[in-house]
């Protein structure tokens, strides 16, 4: 699995996509930091997290679109099927490879916090709580992208479908807010990654929210493994 993580992480820097992902994240997060935090002379970088929360939905498909679709297109997936590795190792290798680039990009918030530390006493606990939420959210979005990428040879299709699914999931609770059915509201809130992120954003570390992210991500990764295994039987 280590070999796959290493290869995956390195591959982002062989294409513009890795630089683009990190560059856009740094740029927009830093812009938000300067405009909404630095100029307001506050030590709470909540606006940066708000920006990142919206941004990751849009740009995570960039790093997941090629994860498996490119392997299918170039037939390099044969390496995995015919080497002494399991499909679970392949999927986890891909997942963590993409996860590393996600962490590298979003870790910019620590730089922002360090800057604030020169001027005041920012709340590091709150920062870590929010960052854990952001990582869990990223993991879920990467898992969605990974499943979609396992289903198609086209990177463009993989990106668009992953984006569409992520957006629907992200907006699902707001779509039913005006509904009279409390059950429907409860269900959509449970499905919505954004709803579960709110706790982390407010500094409330909840085991239920962690469970939601880990179970959803785990389920999607399991689906991705099954898709790869199924291919042998096609």
């Amino acid at each position: 699995m280590k070999a796959i993580i290493k290869r995956e992480f390195a591959s982002y820097f062989a294409h513009p996509v890795g630089y683009l992902f990190i560059g856009v994240t740094f740029l927009l997060a830093s812009f938000s930091f300067f405009i909404d935090v630095f100029l307001y002379a506050t030590t709470d970088i909540a606006p940066v997290f708000s920006t990142l929360f919206s941004l990751v939905y849009l740009i995570v498909p960039l790093i997941t679109m090629r994860l498996l679709s490119e392997e299918k297109r170039h037939k390099t997936e044969q390496v995995f099927y015919t080497s002494p590795v399991t499909m679970t190792e392949v999927i986890f290798g891909k997942f963590f490879g993409a996860g590393l680039i996600y962490i590298a990009a979003t870790a910019i918030v620590f730089v922002h916090q360090l800057v604030l530390a020169f001027y005041g006493s920012p709340d590091w606990g709150l920062l870590f709580c929010r960052y854990i939420g952001l990582i869990l959210l990223g993991g879920l979005l990467i898992a969605i992208g990974l499943v979609v990428s396992a289903l198609t040879e086209s990177q463009a299709v993989a990106a668009i479908v992953a984006l569409a699914i992520s957006m629907v999931m992200g907006q699902v609770d707001s779509l039913t807010q005006s509904s009279s059915s409390q059950t429907l509201i409860k269900i959509t809130e449970w499905i919505s990654p954004g709803h579960h992120f709110t706790g982390f954003f407010n500094g409330n570390f909840s085991v239920a929210d962690v469970f939601y992210y880990l179970s959803m991500t785990g389920l999607l990764l399991f689906v991705a493994v099954r898709i790869l295994d199924r291919k042998r039987w096609a």
């Binding site: 290869r7 591959s11 062989a14 294409h15 170039h74 037939k75 390099t76 044969q78 390496v79 015919t82």
Partner: peptide, 16 residues
């Protein structure tokens, strides 16, 4: 698979 070395018809190479 530990006992096999396989060259498929299209070598599984990463161009990058």
């Amino acid at each position: 698979k530990m006992n096999i070395g396989y060259l498929p018809e299209l070598p599984p190479l990463y161009p990058d």
